[in-house]
Design a protein around this nucleic acid. Structure first.
Lengths: 186, 186
DNA sequence: CAGAGCAAACCATATGGTCGGTTAGTAGAA
DNA sequence: TTCTACTAACCGACCATATGGTTTGCTCTG
């Protein structure tokens, strides 16, 4: 295998950054991230011109990964309205039930929100989701309710440092059930 | 007025800390907070033995303030089930519609979540809310849904750097309406 | 060989925390 | 009341450390 490969190194650095920032918060130093990636600080800054640029790239990467994760959760046999919302809910709760008990991408959004450029990035992403959900066909208020509740459940497990798996699973079922009906929620 | 008053100084420092941390994130330096409070760094550290202790005290203060804010929003003429949930929703959305367009206490929870001791504090607080809502009488699933959705809406406005007031108000009405009915949500 | 990937030393700055010393506030003696 | 003795609030300088970013130079690849 090639010893020097820009794309591969960037990937390794971004993965390391996700781990370190996820653990230490946005205060994570460039040096710490570089060490975690098995790269020197100079080497890291060769690929990302500054710390902020690295964190912004990390945010972009996470948005992409999250989009892909939701798409992957769409049930191919599910052709009813709300299938994308169901995929969103399932992706989020599956992530929440992962190793840490905390949805990684949400942790990182929260941490990175202060980095210049990230807020704008998240706003554009939100707009894309809105359009996608609109095409999904469910009543808009119903979608709003379910998506907001899923987001809320995710951050709750974040703030409180991991949540009860039973409650998580219960909430997931509750939200999925709500996507099976249509019209304004009551 | 007394020139030197421990309680008063602590209050001033905590208020300043809320402002500075809210603006600069958890990276806010002790010195910056001290300056904002009109106090020297040495003076500040006389009251709070360390930076972490200051931030933990800030978190405790915010939890208290938030609890008081919700209590204050309970409509005295409202004696139906779910009045506490309605107060919670109203308090959260009113805060979201404030100056910054972002709920201050949520911003600060997110920022402070990494500080030692804060996660534990938030967990205890969550438990208290659960009990209070249980006493409020609404169907538990309905409460879970509404509260999670309110939380989700709040953090959404956080990540995306301020949200559309029209959407906020729409969501509020949607959630309030859901607290008027009872039984499992459909 | 030429250029890109990369490491390590280096620099300027900022930060958390400590310390000696100063002054406001207070309780009691005279 | 006034003087004294003591406590605690507070300041400002100082220190060790950590951090973001730069520079220099080595090494691998094409």
């Amino acid at each position: 295998m090639k010893e020097r490969d820009t794309a591969r190194t960037r990937r390794i650095v971004l993965d390391a950054a996700a781990r370190v920032v996820g653990r230490q918060g946005s205060g994570a130093s460039v040096d710490a991230i570089a060490r975690a990636a098995g790269v020197s600080k100079g080497g890291l800054l060769h690929h990302f011109k500054s710390r902020d640029q690295l964190l912004l790239a990390l945010a972009e990467d996470l948005v992409e990964q999250w989009t892909a994760a939701v798409r992957a959760k769409v049930d191919p046999r599910d052709h009813g309205r709300g299938r994308l919302v169901r995929a969103y809910v399932n992706a989020l709760f599956d992530e929440t039930l992962g190793e840490t008990g905390v949805p990684e991408h949400v942790t990182l959004y929260a941490t990175l929100a202060g980095v210049p450029g990230v807020a704008e990035l998240l706003r554009r992403d939100k707009e894309r989701w809105r359009e996608a959900f609109e095409a999904d066909g469910l009543d808009p208020d119903r979608v709003l309710l379910v998506v907001r509740a899923a987001d809320g459940a995710a951050v709750a497990s974040l703030y409180e440092g991991g949540a009860d798996p039973g409650e998580i699973e219960h909430t997931r079922r509750l939200l999925l059930a709500l996507t099976e009906a249509d019209g304004p929620p009551t």
